[in-house]
Computed example of a mutant assay.
Amino acid sequence: MGIIKVENIRVFANHGCLKEETKIGSDYRVDLEVEADLKKSAKSDALKDTVDYVLLNKIVREEMGRPSKLLETVALYILDRVLNESEMTQKVTVWVSKINPPIGGDVEMVTIKMSKERKI
Rank of each mutant, 00 (worst) to 15 (best):
K5Q: 15
E7Y: 09
N8K: 11
N8M: 01
I9H: 00
N14C: 14
C17P: 04
C17N: 07
K19N: 08
T22E: 08
K23W: 02
K23D: 08
I24Q: 00
S26H: 05
R29D: 03
R29C: 03
V30W: 00
V34W: 05
V34I: 09
E35Y: 12
A36S: 13
A36K: 01
A36H: 05
A42Q: 08
K48F: 04
D52S: 15
Y53G: 05
V54W: 00
V54R: 04
L55G: 05
L56K: 08
K58W: 00
I59Q: 03
I59E: 04
M64T: 03
G65Y: 01
R66T: 09
P67I: 13
K69W: 13
L70M: 13
L71D: 02
Y77A: 15
L79M: 06
D80I: 07
V82W: 00
E87S: 15
M88Q: 15
Q90H: 13
T93A: 14
T93V: 05
V94R: 01
V96P: 15
K98N: 01
N100Q: 14
P102M: 10
P102F: 13
I103G: 10
V107D: 07
M109A: 15
M114I: 05
S115H: 05
S115G: 07
S115T: 04
K116Y: 05
R118N: 10
R118F: 03
K119L: 09
